[in-house]
Design a protein around this nucleic acid. Structure first.
Lengths: 400, 400
DNA sequence: TGCGGTTCGTAAGGACTCCTGACTGGAACC
DNA sequence: GGTTCCAGTCAGGAGTCCTTACGAACCGCA
């Protein structure tokens, strides 16, 4: 474990970081208000502001008005000092934003894609969006975050081809693609990871340190927070739930309609050839996989869920079993369900029921709170944090 | 997220923490050596040492010798300033240690238990050991850590009764039991969690940030590290793997291939009522559960594993499936196998094979490196860290 | 217009910390 | 005995944060 080395630089950078964060989060702030917001004294804040002005990170704006006494001068972040890009790439297209230090979205660009989506077409849309965003940025681009609807190796930023990846048929390498478009290597991650970050920051998971989110849409994925931090895994590939086992019969629907706990007495010889039982195989044998693809037919699944069809209910039960096993493993305080069919009442109820009897340990189940572009929101939040960190260089650390 | 508020107190406490940690980890150290070890200047270290001497945390010892120039005076931690207790409670008995600030074990006490172990007998042994340790401690007891071979709610320190807990039949509440024995509330956690801490500190998982450890003994449990930190879950109950599903047939060996064990018929009605498919039920129906208990018959299982019996191989396959699903979920860099039968070659190979084809993503599988009282070792390590932290009161923090 | 009350921002001084460089004291070596 | 080397301290300098205090600016009201 590494700890900060005590030094005066440490104090100074800590002060600057506090003040900059206060200005950024408030949008505009006077020195006096920054002092009360940070807990530092006014003179200290003034000194810090002088340094930040010198560095060009903040600028003095208009005078405050409306107050009772002397009007202070507002400080705002300087967009020309640097911006961040947040980009979301999915099967429906690419969306991206230019984000200022205080979180304002300065520009948005979008490219829709016609099916079938190929790594080539997606890559072209990605670079086009990033190029457009860069030219719209009022300052240098200092941080780039990219959300991709596939497993991503965070260390390399490359999309990893796993058996159950639904979206991309081939390889996509955003880091290489964007190497000549943006001046910094992008941070690439899975869309569910970003979505959970958004939920944790401004959704249903605010303040909850241990969360499991299940995203059920064309693909199935999960994201986790543990101990107040995102759980990425060694390679950033954490969250694959498609391989989790389920006991719900994957073949043969005879007689087992009873939705209470008595099902499954005849499950042994299901799908004799393949070693059956993973959630992905369950989806496949229930007939919800798109022809010749690894993507789920969401529309017909939603219809069946609405109708209460047996096949759909069985899938919901399978999901609930997986959620239960993972909840036992991870002990989350909250399970968030997202995605078009993950948010369906049938699924939510099945999961809620499955988690209710966990030995007196209460786990809350909620629908995702952010429905519009949650991955983009998460990418923006992360980009903003990184952008702030850009200006406060870490002082030296030593390992103990 | 909270960050330190810049202040001079922060610097001072940081210096003191560094110096104390250097002295503690070296055993004995001169001021000059501490200066080079911490990266601080000699005068700063001298000031810090003066404060630590004043506080009584360290004492001056003998003079150094053998060098060429003037001999420095050794600083050592002061055992009379405070110690920690690390205690391990398991089915075989209770072991505990008095730990000094530098990690020396000053005393050990032990109570063996005769079966059947009841919460009462275990509680009595626990209090007896802690009382003996306290009276042997040269200074006040400032930290107590307890390892229990059952699911533990870290917030309350109470053993939680989950369906698959093998060891204790009733309730055990170490915090309440020890309230009048030791002057601080103990930190209670699962034995597997402590064992993984030990593996991460001085075992096979040193320097590995993302680890999954499966402990397979009389009970089955898991522990995880994610992002360089232990993953406890919201209540500290993370690690329950007994409920994970497996596709290995849990009853009736008809049609399944391979060598047939002698015992497969003993499962009978245990599984017919309950919904089948969890790992625990798999163990039960394969006949490895002790009569009228939730504990696994390790001896006969080990025999069968040695013989390569079909039942035992199936159990190994089931474990491997569970490991595979959880590895997909968590993306660990390393999977550690511990426990008497978890370390068996048959199990290790099954898990290794199951994790080998994970889509080109390599996950290492290793046997646990610490075999002797790994939970006690982990509890000692944690106690030591907490003991060090006792003397460096946190300066104020603010939330951003 | 004049005045008081309020608030902003800065200045001055004090306390404190860390660092560099010089200095003292002691032990071993030639 | 002189030299060499090292541990530890002293003194001065630079820098940070804080408290106290003060001028400047603004509003409301007579």
């Amino acid at each position: 474990m590494t700890v900060d080395l005590p030094s005066l630089d440490l104090l100074r950078s800590l002060s600057d970081r506090h003040v900059l964060a206060a200005v950024a989060s408030a949008g505009q702030l006077t020195r006096a208000a920054a002092a009360t917001a940070t807990g530092l004294s006014k003179p200290t804040v003034s000194q810090s502001v002088a340094r930040l002005l010198e560095a060009g990170v903040v600028v003095e704006g208009e005078r405050a008005s409306g107050g009772r006494g002397r009007a202070g001068t507002y400080l705002t972040v300087n967009d020309a000092a640097g911006c961040a890009l947040a980009v979301q790439a999915g099967p429906e297209g690419v969306v991206g934003e230019v984000v200022a230090l205080d979180g304002r979205v300065l520009a948005t660009h979008r490219r829709t894609l016609s099916s079938p989506v190929t790594p080539g077409s997606l890559g072209r849309a990605l670079t086009a969006v990033c190029r457009a965003l860069t030219s719209d940025s009022p300052g240098p681009v200092r941080v780039v975050t990219v959300s991709v609807a596939d497993p991503v190796d965070r260390r390399t930023g490359r999309v990893v081809e796993l058996p159950a990846s639904p979206f991309l048929v081939g390889e996509l390498d955003p880091v290489r693609l964007l190497a000549k478009v943006v001046p910094v290597p992008p941070v690439v991650d899975n869309d569910v990871s970003w979505a959970l970050l958004a939920e944790h920051t401004e959704g249903v998971a605010v303040g909850v340190d241990d969360v499991l989110q299940l995203h059920l849409d064309e693909g199935m994925g999960a994201a986790m927070w543990a101990g107040g931090r995102p759980l990425h895994g060694a390679r950033g590939l954490a969250g694959e739930v498609a391989y989790s086992r389920t006991s719900v019969p994957t073949r043969g629907t005879r007689g087992t309609r009873g939705t209470r706990g008595t099902r499954g007495t005849r499950s042994t010889q299901a799908t004799s050839a393949a070693p059956s039982g993973t959630l992905m195989e369950c989806v496949a044998s229930l007939g919800y996989l798109r022809e010749g693809s690894k993507a789920i037919e969401v529309e017909s699944l939603l219809e069946d869920l609405d109708r209460g069809a047996g096949q759909a209910r069985r899938l919901a039960a399978a999901v609930a079993e997986v959620a239960r096993a993972h909840a036992y493993l991870l002990d989350p305080e909250l399970v968030v369900l997202s995605g078009r069919w993950g948010r369906h009442t049938e699924v939510v109820e099945a999961v809620t029921t499955a988690l209710a009897d966990a030995g007196g340990v209460a786990t809350t189940v909620e629908r995702a709170g952010i429905t519009d572009d949650a991955p983009l929101t998460g990418a923006r939040i992360h980009a903003l944090g990184e952008l702030l960190a850009t200006w406060s260089a870490q002082p030296g650390t030593v390992s103990t």
